[in-house]
Each structure stands twice: as structure tokens, then as C-alpha cells.
Write a protein that binds this DNA or RNA. Sequence first.
DNA 1: CATGAATGAGTCTTCATTCAT
DNA 2: CATGAATGAAGACTCATTCAT
Lengths: 203, 203, 203, 203
Amino acid sequence: MASQVVVLDPQKRERRRQILDAAKHVFADSGYHGASIHAIIDRADIARGTFYLYFESKSAVFSSILDEAMESLRRLMHRIDVDDPNAAPPQVQLRQQIVGALEFVVQDRALAMLLLSAGHTPDAEAAERLDQFFGEVRDLLRRAFESGQEIKLLRKVQPELLAAAFLGMIRGVVEHIITHPQPPTVESVVDEILFVALRGVLA
Amino acid sequence: MASQVVVLDPQKRERRRQILDAAKHVFADSGYHGASIHAIIDRADIARGTFYLYFESKSAVFSSILDEAMESLRRLMHRIDVDDPNAAPPQVQLRQQIVGALEFVVQDRALAMLLLSAGHTPDAEAAERLDQFFGEVRDLLRRAFESGQEIKLLRKVQPELLAAAFLGMIRGVVEHIITHPQPPTVESVVDEILFVALRGVLA
Amino acid sequence: MASQVVVLDPQKRERRRQILDAAKHVFADSGYHGASIHAIIDRADIARGTFYLYFESKSAVFSSILDEAMESLRRLMHRIDVDDPNAAPPQVQLRQQIVGALEFVVQDRALAMLLLSAGHTPDAEAAERLDQFFGEVRDLLRRAFESGQEIKLLRKVQPELLAAAFLGMIRGVVEHIITHPQPPTVESVVDEILFVALRGVLA
Amino acid sequence: MASQVVVLDPQKRERRRQILDAAKHVFADSGYHGASIHAIIDRADIARGTFYLYFESKSAVFSSILDEAMESLRRLMHRIDVDDPNAAPPQVQLRQQIVGALEFVVQDRALAMLLLSAGHTPDAEAAERLDQFFGEVRDLLRRAFESGQEIKLLRKVQPELLAAAFLGMIRGVVEHIITHPQPPTVESVVDEILFVALRGVLA
DNA sequence: CATGAATGAGTCTTCATTCAT
DNA sequence: CATGAATGAAGACTCATTCAT
């Protein structure tokens, strides 16, 4: 059976998970550079050498974490069905997807912090991988704007610019939710933001 | 006009500038942690010790850069005058200020990249200073929303959430402008974004 | 006999020894501050990082050296048995102990020099540890004087002052033995000093 | 007029004093190595370059401090007059000299601490100078013992060993006086120590 | 004479990665 | 497979000394 993912026997899979989880939390706590292999293997409760048995470098784990996240996100973002009369109205579908994606990110606090906090790192490989991640998300958004425009749901906009702006907005919102002492529900946040995005702030 | 800053003789001022500029570029290129004192002094073409003559630590230069940027931004962001009949209409004033601020950031490419790329660093002092910087900008935005609401220019919104969202949006836009191969003019970008922000994307 | 010290497998023990020995010599040669990690690892023929695998800092090795020395000294200094009719007479016991302790210090030339040469260092931790070491020795001496006084072996003296004086005397004597081109035997030195201490220099 | 000391005009003399005093205190506080030129010029309230106008290096000031101290000590230690029937009895003269010397050292607290705390330093020049200082004192003591022996005041001793032992004792006593919370008078200390030295501790 | 800005060798310490067991 | 001891490059920072003004 063809598979993009290298098939590992369950034991190794399990170890890999263990390391990925540990790394995710450490990256979240300390940022990419601040995360030490020491902290990761400590949390994963494995030996130093074992780490390098599963990942060839620090940036490799980082990459894998982003890979997994991207895949999950992609699974959540289907095409919005406009033609099927049985489907929910587009705006409802849109809202559902955004809520879903945001909830995915926000509920995995470690992932969210990792994504927010990992800035440019001196490690070129990691930096590139992160750029790529956000690039993909931005593409997702851009295509969404383009479709919306085509089907006349949205007015004429510059999709690329808007994608960049909205990606930033999402990051800002996620940060708001995560760092807030009494985090609002994702639903309430999406309602407010979506309203603003769709209709603007003008009275 | 009296200055808050300790007055240095022109020579020292000049050196300080030289170091600040070099540091800004290095931070922009490599992020806070990735920036080495070595790289900074290399770029500034000074000796190791000279650096510590002007700044007591790496995080101190970083701080100073943010201080200067914040001060400049604040100078650009006046209160919007609504009552004076001789003043430009509020929306025009708003647009001017945003254009001004954005232009300030974008035209200092190094500063822009520094602000975008500096993520969580293991250096607590630097991290805090950066948080503070964005916190101040967010406050500026929040107060703007609150005023707008009070004078009934804007509809009822959650100022804090919107401030976070718009700060993120601004970061996204700045990144877009900076990284774009053919960067659009700030004016055109502001027009598009402002329109969206005020009236939404709906057709 | 159970050991207070964490038990290490022989390999690590050996390495630790190797580093301690190297450090002792370097400290002896250059004093605490003058001793560089570089010199220590050079002498121990290990890599920089290896040093920090066994000791968490320069002051930690220093501390360990003093710990070991103190423990050895303490093992050499038993209470003097006055009552047991089978034991050697007190003066003989005293002489034996002093000879033993002095021989221990003198024969480990590096240790002796380290103890003599380490003055006030800017490193607070190391300085404190050294003070503590000599403080303990002084206490040993003070208690010895107090006991001697109680059992009427010694005449009325100020134990604290005398302890300080004799500790200094011992340092002086050790220095004499160590730096002398033809070092006298410890026994001969102890005989002379002990005689003076007990009966004075007057004809 | 011949003079060992280079004659300086009063202004320079004064400046020199100022620096020597400052340096003495700083050396006393932090030991030789821990003393920074910065601390010295700060305390002397002079500019960096000025320091090097008066002393060619850090070790040079250190040397000068010891020179001055040695000269003062020598002035205090005359030959003990045994023959002159009008002179005080030898033991009284001895006591006076010791009290005088000790008082000189103890009352100049900074000097005392400097002498006690300056251990082997990595600075070869300074280390040598310090050894020389104590060597001279030891010689003074040795000659005293030799004379005492010649005139049959003292019994047969090993002058060199005893000089080393007594020098150490003196250091111990000075340390005791200086570090004691309620320092005893020098006179009382000398009485006790001298008694012990002359007659021993035996009951 | 006095100044203090500039220098750069040298310090301790960290940490990603390798490899023999 | 797993281990963890060993490595050494690289990092931030200090400080005695020089020298142009």
C-alpha cells in the first residue's frame, strides 16, 4: 500500500510520538532556539542518542511538528460548497471551517505557542520551514479569497494582500485567545472577527 | 525643546548611532538570539570592548532600538481631531496617520524585519521588552477603537480583541510589503486594507 | 562501610579524579582566579565540555578539592584518648596526629600550595568555601585547646586567639617545608615546633 | 641631597598618594586580581589615563604599596639593645616593638586585609613582589631569633623554621584581630601570644 | 598634564551532535 | 536498538592598557 509516510512498526511510532510531543512543548515554552535537546529528551524521558535515532537534528523535529500541524489543518479546510442546495449556506460553512481551524490551533496550546513564538531563528533550515508553513496557510487563504471573488460572494479585492493581512489577523487573534487570562470562546471570537471582516467596523 | 535623552557629545552620539544601526541590521537578519555581538561589531567596524562602552549588554541595544522605534511611532500618532472644523475629516486624518506609521516602519527595512522576526527568545529581558513594545502598540489601537466607538464613528466592537486582531493584521501587511518582490506603495495598501477594515469584504 | 558520596561507576570516578587532580595542580600553580578552565582541561587532557559534565563550574571543582581535603584531614584527627591506660600518652598521640596531618598536606604538594596561595578571590562562592575550610580547621584547633585546658594539660589560654595563631603557624610551617630547597622531614619540624609550642622559646 | 625616593613636586606627590590610598582599599576589598583599575580610579576620582601617568601598571601600584609598608615596618623594628644599662630590659623592648608593628598593621585595616588576602595571583610580578615582602619580614624575624640565640636569651632553635612559623602566627593573629567582631586590643593579644611563644602552652 | 574612548586578548559557560559500548 | 560520555565550536562579557586630543 502506497503511503507518503514512512511506515514504522508501532513501537517506533510510539517513540516518535513521544519525542514529537515533548519537543512541541519545549519549543512552545522556550522558542526554537531556546529549546535545548537536553530539555526535549528530559521531557521525553529518553537518552540523548535515542533522539538522534528518530530525528536527524533539532530542526528536523521542528519540521515534523509543522508537517503534522499543516496536514491536520488541511484536513479541516475543505472547499466551500456553493452549488449543492443541500449544503449549508456558504457563510455558515465558512464560519464552521474557521471555528474548526482556530479551535484546532487553540486547543493544542503548545502548538499555538510554538507557531506564535518561533521567530526568525539563526537556524536557516528551521526558519525556512516556518516560512513555508505560513506560506502554505497564506496560499490557502488567498485561494479562498479568489474563489469568493469568482463566485461574486466577495467584492473585488487584492487576494494576496488580503491573505497576508488575514493571516496576520489570525495570528493576532490566536495570541489574544491564548494569552488572555479568561480566554473567550473561539466561537464568540470568530463571530466578532468574521463580522468585522465581512462588514467592516464602520457604524 | 528639551530632550528626555541624556545629551551626549556629537562624537559619542555618532558612535552610538553606528552601533544601533549595525545592531538593527544584524537583529533583522538573524533574530535576537541569532545575532552575535561578533556580527554586530563587525558590521559597526568597532572593537569588542567598544560595544560594551555604549551598551551594557546585547539586550540593552535591542531595547534601545525598540525605544527609538516606539518614540518615533508615537510622534507619528496624534489624537484624531474631530471637533475642529478646520481640520481634515477624521477618515482622512486616520488614513494619513496609518500611512505615516506604516511608511516609517516599511522604509526602515531593518527595523521592520526585526519587529517581525523577533520571536520568543530565551533572553527574558529581550522577550519582555518586545512584548512591551507590541503591548504599547496594541494599547494605542485599543484606545483608538474606544474613541471611535464613543464618537459613534464605529459600531459596537470588542476593543481589546480588535486591537489584537488589527495589530496582527498590520504585521501581516508589513511582512507582505517587505517581502514582496515588487512592493506595492504603502498608500495603495492602506487604501485597500482600510476599506476592508471599515466596510468589510462582502460584495 | 556506606559512603556519603554518590557512588559513580569506576569509569566516571576515574575521570572525576583525573579532573580533580588536574585542577588541583592548576589552582596550586596559579591561584583560584588565575586558574583557567583552559589550563585545567589541558592538563586533564579532556575537552572543554567534558569538564562541565563532571563539575558544574570552576568554583565547584575548587569546592570539591577542599571537601576531599577536609574529609581526609578529619579522618586523621581523632580525639586524643586520655583515660585509656593502654593508649599512648597524650603527648605522643598529639605528636602523631600533627605529624600525620602535616604529612598529608605536605606530601600532596599541589594541595598544600593551593591552600597557601588561594587568597581572597573575586568569586564569592570560592572565597566563602575557602573561609569555611580554614574555619573548620580553626575550630578543630580551638576545641583541642579547650579540651587540653579542661584536663589541665594546658594552662589557661584564650582558645580562640590561640587557634588563630596556631593555624597561622601551621600555614607558615607548611610553606617553609614546601618551599625549602632541602625540605626537612615533617617529623623533625614537628618536634621543633611542638617543643616551642609547649615550652616556649625562652632559654 | 641623595634620596632613594624619586623627588616629586608636592602636587604630583599628592596625586600619587591619592592613587595609592585608593588602590590599597580596593586591593583590600577585592584582592589583587579582583581589584579593577576601574574601581581604583573611581575611588581616586581620576581619569583612566591619569592612573598610568603615575604607575606603569596595576602590579606597580601593588608593589609601591608593599614598598611603603615595608619601609614603615622597618622603621618600627630597631635592634634590641641588650648592653646599654639605661635601656629597658630586652623583653620589654621586644614587647614594645611587636606591639608597635602589630598596631601599625592592624590600625591600617586596608593594608592588613591586603596583606592577608592577596594570595598567589596569576600576575607573576605581583606574586613575586608579595613573596619578597613576606620574605623580608621573615628575614627580620630570623635575624631576631639568631641574635636572641647568640646572647643566650633564647635556647637553641632553628631560626629559619621558627621565623616561618612565627610569621604565619603573626598573620593568623592579625587576621583574628581584624575579623573579630569585638577586636581585642593589640596589647592584650601580644601579651598572650608572647607568653605562649616564650614559655609555651604547657601547664 | 589630564582625559576617557578605543582596543582585543582572554574568561567562563552552553549545547547540538557523534560514536563506542 | 538504546545509551550517555565526549566533543569543541561558539557565545556574551571583562578589563588592563594605549593613545589621540
